[in-house]
């Protein structure tokens, strides 16, 4: 649920990278920080334990000001993937406006992916998010590895689902922007009715995405 702060004319949109442990959520965020050419790009706040596991969350603040003077601020979070941190995951997921589910493509991880996705669905319910109306993208990460699930199989598996599926190698940045783009499309549509981006702020979907991403050319 995006928060509009009238006093500062600021709209804060919360995006969350969800998924099983070690699937590459933090890596996604780090690449976004590297690649994105947003007007306002804050420091990436990474809170990890000694062995590369996210303890609380990671946060990348981004933003731009529309011609109408509205500051649209994006807070992009990752959740801790480990099963034990469920309360933290719930707190971070709370009020999310969009979610990227980062799945691990390795064949050995299919059960973890499924459990984590189920956990996302459960937690969304617990924090009062209407899961069916939630902007969501499924990202299959680590496409560079061997022993991974084939793209055909992934497409077949998610054929019936309403969410777009993307493929990525977050380590070298492949597919990271495409994923965010797919999410932003949905987020724009979901928030446009309430905040009247086009009518009030003359902000089209394309502009909304471009202002955040910059002149990135999709490969």
């Amino acid at each position: 649920m995006a928060i509009y702060d009238e006093e500062n004319n600021r709209l804060t949109i919360k995006l969350v990278y969800y998924g099983p442990a070690m699937s590459g959520k933090t890596t996604n965020l780090m690449r976004l920080h590297d690649i994105l050419k947003t007007d306002l790009k804050g420091e990436i706040m990474i809170m990890e334990t000694t062995n590369d596991r996210t303890l609380f969350f990671d946060l990348l603040p981004l933003g731009f000001t529309t011609s109408s003077g509205l500051l649209i601020k994006f807070k992009v979070y990752t959740v801790p993937g480990q099963v034990v941190h469920d309360s933290t995951r719930k707190a971070v997921l709370s009020r999310a406006d969009g979610v990227v589910f980062v799945a691990d493509s390795q064949l050995s991880q299919s059960i973890n992916n499924a459990q984590s996705f189920e956990n996302l669905e459960d937690n969304a319910g617990r924090v009062g998010i209407d899961f069916d109306g939630l902007p969501l993208v499924i990202q299959y990460n680590k496409r560079d590895l061997n022993n991974i699930i084939s793209e055909t199989e992934v497409q077949e598996r998610w054929q019936q689902a309403p969410w777009p599926v993307t493929f990525s190698n977050a380590l070298n940045g492949l597919g990271v922007i495409e994923t965010l783009q797919a999410l932003l499309k949905q987020v724009y549509d979901a928030l446009d009715t309430e905040f009247m981006f086009l009518q009030k702020h003359n902000l089209t979907q394309d502009a909304f995405i471009k202002r955040l991403i910059g002149d990135y050319v999709i490969h």
Partner: peptide, 24 residues
């Protein structure tokens, strides 16, 4: 301020999850 915000967010989140866990 940045360093303090890091601390504040972590501690607030900690308090929040503690409270949620306790309620649960």
């Amino acid at each position: 301020l940045y360093s303090n915000s890091r601390y504040l967010m972590a501690s607030d989140l900690h308090i929040q999850t503690q409270r949620d866990d306790y309620e649960e």
